[in-house]
Design a protein around this nucleic acid. Structure first.
Lengths: 351, 351
DNA sequence: TTGATTTATTGGAACGTTCCATTTAATAGG
DNA sequence: CCTATTAAATGGAACGTTCCAATAAATCAA
């Protein structure tokens, strides 16, 4: 039963009548052991209720098969989906990754990274917290630990990045809106401390430029990247003298907020105001109305990132190529039908 | 710079001109060291780019300050919220917990637990995967590792549980529905392999019993505990000759599905069919219509569970008291106004 | 001064593995 | 039968910490 002191390899050796080295070999599945001996050992392992001490092993081995996933916000379904994608490939590689949440806090992230290093991780895939300092990963780098960024990148950094083509996604979405007949457009949510923001906003601007929307007719509203942020953006946008008729949102959460706020004002999403989201989270499809959004293949990017870090670990390198994932616009209901002679007129109320 | 071999405590000792023991003491913040010596050592630590090897330390120390959170489904916002609550308290205890996702798979859970044990965790808080075998935690128990279950319990197990008062929650919700004038009620979603299911269904039944709903007028529809499950439940319920007019849903996800399906059929949630959810996830408040739901204080229970496991670790025990968290019904819009002369007329409300 | 006490520091033996270099046993070649 | 060769098993030295017991240095009591 509850043997007080935990069993070690030596207890097994004694039980099985072999040497500790033999036990070690069996544990590693070495083919050097006679099958019957191995069996005997395995039986002994069972008997003494042994649990492998990975710490001790790593001490000797110097590389650890522990992989960490550092996620900026597990509460956000988008990142949760991504994490699940990563997990899938780690699992099929026989690895149990450790997930840590930084809750979008750079200092928390610092702690997490420190802890993970102390634990001797073999590699890391990180979705960095907003506002991460440029040097935050230096220690990892000098320690030679393979790291890959996913979804987000740091302003200047040699660490490989797996991310969607944000620029193109925003371009596509904006073009869609313009194609629907909108001539005064807004970009809702996000703030410049995120590289992603610049990428998406850049796509928005480029599309406006290319498709003949005057600079004065493209409005940018910074805001939280949440439902709440979306609500706020819509409020201030509609309070303008000449409000926009459509918005590209920084992400789906913002878009949901906008949809909500529209409803609350008695406006019909799609018909009265078009909105497109970004990321295409699972919920987008089930929303009322279903949200038109830029799909970035979230889980797929997660998988990709996991693969990359595995490869880096295997080839003991700290570099790898960036990967920019394809995106595509999935059109649902939140932009309504095409706008005919609607011009900039109408707009039921303004409050 | 990039010193090839990673620095150890001895390198620091050499650099600072002291013994390794001194360095070790500094690392542990012992007050036995002369402040100036400590400073010298700390400087040396910085110089050589040292990273603490927790594996080596644990080998000697025999207890590890690593705590694991094993979550059945990180993709589910409900469990994510709970996880965040736990994290909060671990963080303020100066601990970085490792999160592992079991994706509701017992075999995955097995792997995760094994890995965590090998890593030498000091304690675990677990939200067990659906269908976990009764003996799944035996190894942990005989190893004397403190474990606490959160949200879910296993049929027979001595492991302490932190969970909401599911029975009472369901009772309250059902009473609310009956008070609104409903006389033919359904319970939507879930399946008997979850203890929670029996608890909630039990509360539903007891309320019906106590408030005079005939057994023939309480309908139970098993189903997935997801939006999809909710949609399916509603479909089959409405296909009946005498369909129910209200449903208590196993959880909020199911309720969202029901709301969706109602809309799709052109029915008005609340007015045509009342629905109440369970768990009161963040989204419930922002849904259209806002969802009436049983609030269980998700994050609070997570915090509680974290506290309990910390205490258990500290007092080196493997037992603790169960904690059944208070619940309360938060009434929003999804049950509409009271049902007046609607078939089974009269009856203001009761609750 | 001398011994007792306190304050700082230190060597060395663990901790539970892995893995190299050996030893021992078994098999084959002549 | 002896030696080479192969197969199987083993002892012991690491790995980077902690912590006990011991030392060295400083302070105090007498």
């Amino acid at each position: 039963m509850a043997s007080r002191a935990k069993a070690t390899i030596l207890d097994i050796a004694r039980e099985a009548g072999v040497s500790k080295s033999t036990v070690s070999l069996v544990l590693q599945g070495s083919g050097l052991i006679r099958p019957e001996t191995a069996l005997k050992v395995r039986k002994a392992i069972e008997n003494v209720g042994y649990v492998y001490n990975r710490g001790a092993a790593n001490l000797r081995k110097a590389h650890s098969n522990v992989i960490g996933m550092v996620i900026n916000d597990l509460t956000n379904p988008f990142f949760a989906e991504m994490a699940v994608g990563m997990e899938r490939v780690f699992q099929s590689a026989g690895i149990v990754p450790f997930i840590a949440n930084t809750a979008e806090s750079p200092v928390r992230q610092e702690e997490v990274l420190k802890s993970l290093m102390e634990q001797g991780v073999a590699g890391l895939v990180v979705s960095p917290a907003r506002g991460t300092a440029p040097g935050a990963f230096r220690r990892l780098e000098t320690a030679g630990v393979p790291v890959v960024f996913v979804m987000r990148r740091l302003p200047e950094s040699r660490i490989p990045v797996i991310a969607p083509d944000n620029h193109r996604g925003a371009y596509l979405a904006t073009a869609h809106l313009i194609g629907k007949g909108h001539r005064r457009l807004a970009f809702f949510g996000g703030s410049p401390d995120l590289v992603v923001y610049h990428e998406r906003l850049g796509g928005f601007r480029e599309a406006c430029e290319a498709l003949g929307i005057a600079p004065a007719d493209r409005l940018v509203f910074e805001g939280e990247t949440s439902r709440k942020g979306g609500i706020a953006c819509l409020e201030t946008a509609l309070a303008m003298a000449a409000p926009p008729t459509a918005a590209l949102c920084f992400n789906d959460a913002v878009a949901f907020g906008v949809l909500l706020a529209l409803r609350k004002r008695g406006l019909e999403p799609g018909a009265d105001f078009a909105v497109v989201g970004f990321d295409d989270v699972a919920e987008a499809e089930h929303y009322m109305p279903a949200l038109t959004s830029v799909s970035v293949n979230t889980a797929g990017l997660g998988e990709r990132a996991a693969h990359v870090v595995l490869k880096m670990i295997q080839s003991r390198t700290t570099r790898a190529e960036d990967h920019i994932g394809a995106v595509n616009l999935v059109v649902r209901e939140s932009c309504g039908p095409d706008r005919k002679g609607h011009s900039c007129a109408g707009m039921g109320d303004a409050a």
